[in-house]
Simulated scan of single mutants.
Amino acid sequence: MKQLLNTKFPTSVSHVWLLVLRVTSAAFMLTHGYPKLMTLLEGGEIAFYDFLGLGMTASLALAVLAEFICSILLILGLATRLASIPLIITMLVAAFAVHADDPFGKKEFGLLYLLIFITTLVFGAGKYSIDRLLEKK
């Protein structure tokens, strides 16, 4: 029974969990970013939420930067905290602007991603990352 109540995890478990959380959430986000990248590269008519008033193409490019490029950086564990910031902003826009009038169920995924990316901002990439390798040099 005492073992079940133990809340202390070895540090190695924390680092493995940061790796799993970082890689899986970023890989899932790539499934949102890749189609946006293809839309941007095709150069056809773009219909995208213009949250900053910069135009639909610029807004789409910023979303691609966050959802595709920053997700790749998270998978690698490279510039993890910096890469988390555009993803956090994108999830804030998705949850509170794009889906502002939608029921909570539509906002839920954006909010869950938001919490994950805030976690990567706060805790960093962990031991198993390029950030850690560069830190050692």
Rank of each mutant, 00 (worst) to 15 (best):
T119A: 15
I46P: 08
L133P: 00
V64I: 10
L60I: 14
T39C: 02
E135V: 00
V93T: 09
F68K: 06
D131V: 04
T31R: 10
S129E: 09
T57M: 11
K136I: 12
A66M: 09
M29L: 14
L134E: 02
E42V: 03
M29W: 07
K107V: 03
F96M: 04
F28W: 15
L5H: 09
V122I: 10
T7N: 06
L78D: 00
L121C: 02
W17V: 05
A83I: 07
F123K: 10
I130V: 10
I72N: 03
V16H: 06
D101R: 03
L40E: 08
L52A: 15
I88N: 01
F96P: 03
V98W: 01
L37N: 06
F28T: 15
G77I: 01
F117L: 04
L73K: 03
G105S: 15
I130F: 03
T90C: 01
L115V: 15
Y128N: 14
F104V: 12
V23A: 08
A100G: 05
A100Q: 04
D50H: 12
L121F: 13
A47C: 00
A79M: 08
P103H: 07
Q3M: 11
E135Q: 06
L134P: 00
H99P: 05
A66Q: 07
A79D: 00
C70N: 09
A61S: 13
A66P: 05
D50S: 09
V64S: 08
A26M: 01
T119Q: 10
T11V: 03
Y113T: 02
Y128D: 12
A97R: 13
L37Y: 10
S25G: 11
I130C: 05
G55W: 04
P86M: 10
V122E: 12
M56T: 11
A79W: 08
A27Q: 01
I75D: 01
F109K: 14
G77Y: 02
